Amino acid sequence: MSLAASIVSLAVFVLLAHYVVRLMLDSVSHTREIPGPLWSRLTNLWYLRQMIKGDFHNTNIKLHRQKGTIVRIAPNYYSLSDPACLKTIYGLGTKYVKSSWYDAWNTEEDLTWTNLFSERDPKKHAASRRKVASMYSMTTLTSYEPFVDGCISLFRRHLDQAGSSASAVNLAHWVQCYAFDVIGYITFGERFGFLDNMLDVSNIIKNLDAAGSAASYIGLFIMLRPLIMKILRLMGLLGTDALADFAERNVKMGGSRKAIYGAEKIAFYSPMLNKLLEAKKAAPGRFTEWDIMANVISNVGAGSDTTAISLSAVFYFIYSNPETLQRLRDELEVAGIDDIPRFSDTQKLPYFQAVLKECLRLHPGTGFPMFREVPEGGAVISGQFFPSKFDWN
């Protein structure tokens, strides 16, 4: 037998032995009766395939309808559809910490360079959150309205031109261009430029989508992440990112130098980066360069896609339901809302608010579970005992 054949045979033997051991452990575990696809008992590959197909949200709903409140989607990975579990697992002060899946969202191999999304340690996450909590207060968020208003004007101009020419447009792509420029403007005081020609500037949308997909997949095989990252680097797939370059340039410039004023030119509006730099200047020992870069990049990464997805869902649902669309138009006409309304004005539109919330319920911004680990000692969730991660070792 040749060396290559021996290696292949050994690999097959190890793989089969792994599956046999996994089945044996599963047969005596507390969760052996939890239903799910056969392959989900053996390997993460079944769940990975659903993720790649892009329809796991639909598959998961079907699984729950067929098999009940708790279903297995991978070895030691379970999905729950019991609303009573939400506060227990995701509530403030929960003992259910983020799973190792989140490590895939850190900077390359260095798992210490975390961000608010990827940080798994509750104490470190709380400390990081406190640094930027004021940046996301309602008062601060509404102060960004002039940045949003500028993007709305550009977006409407494109819509008017498309409407007058009766040309078909890819509205999902357009709202993504709008969302990216809004988040860029709010964060840096400078638009990326997507709204100029409704094009993906420097492939930022494409690359961010690819990075998000890769992190989602790699998170299922986190032990292999260092090897996967090295392979991707050798293949030239981890080149300089335009978003990181954009952020770094603005940080080095010391933030936006452009003055943005309100309608009456009374209040100066400062983008988020400027606020972060001012906070670092006021308390240099509290903020690091990484804190600033991680927060501005995360702000764009997390805020752009979710905003675009939500807007696409709103457009889809209201135009799929003519009666809803007409009732919305009637409410806006009676209220006498301006072409570009204030946030405070929209809070006085009950039907509009109900439609937004229903659209987000029907189509949330993420279709993947946000995995958490069962605390040490195990726990009973929705009537089922789950051992902790320590019990599996």
Rank of each mutant, 00 (worst) to 15 (best):
Y185W: 06
Y217A: 08
H125L: 10
R120D: 02
L227G: 07
R120L: 00
I70P: 03
F155S: 07
K357V: 09
Y47I: 01
A168S: 15
R130Y: 02
N393L: 14
G303F: 11
W392K: 13
E33M: 10
K62D: 13
F386D: 06
D305T: 10
I381M: 03
N393M: 13
P35R: 13
I266V: 15
I70H: 00
R225G: 00
Y269P: 04
L311N: 00
V355W: 01
A283I: 03
Q353V: 08
L195Q: 11
G184R: 05
I381W: 02
Y351H: 08
W174G: 02
V8K: 04
Y269N: 14
Y185A: 05
H363T: 08
R257E: 11
S2W: 06
D181A: 05
G189R: 06
Q50I: 01
S2T: 07
A166P: 00
Q176G: 10
D245C: 14
E108N: 14
T112A: 06
V380S: 09
I7K: 02
K389V: 13
K252H: 11
V169C: 15
F246A: 06
F390T: 15
I231Y: 13
V148M: 05
D110P: 07
S100G: 00
I266W: 02
K67R: 12
A162N: 03
P75I: 02
R156S: 02
P341K: 08
A179P: 12
E358M: 12
L171S: 03
K265C: 04
S6T: 10
M135W: 09
R129T: 05
S164I: 02
M293C: 03
P75L: 03
E248T: 09
N106L: 06
F343A: 14
K95M: 05
R225N: 04
M272D: 05
Y19H: 14
W113M: 14
G163W: 11
P341W: 05
A211W: 09
I266T: 15
D391V: 00
S382M: 05
L220M: 12
A74W: 10
G254P: 11
L171W: 03
A282H: 10
Y144L: 12
P226W: 05
I292T: 02
G68W: 12
G184S: 10
G254C: 03
K357H: 15
T306L: 12
G254N: 09
G236C: 09
H363F: 14
E373R: 07
Y47D: 04
S9C: 10
R286P: 03
Y96E: 04
G150S: 12
S382P: 11
Y19K: 09
D160Y: 05
G93A: 07
Y144V: 03
T59D: 13
L234F: 08
K258L: 10
I186M: 15
E289A: 13
T288C: 06
F317G: 00
V355G: 01
G303M: 07
I228D: 01
F371W: 15
L360M: 15
M253N: 15
Y217L: 15
R157T: 08
V132L: 02
G383I: 01
N393H: 10
L86P: 04
R286D: 11
P146F: 07
N203T: 07
R22T: 10
R130I: 00
M235F: 13
F221V: 14
G189Y: 12
T346G: 02
L195E: 08
L86E: 11
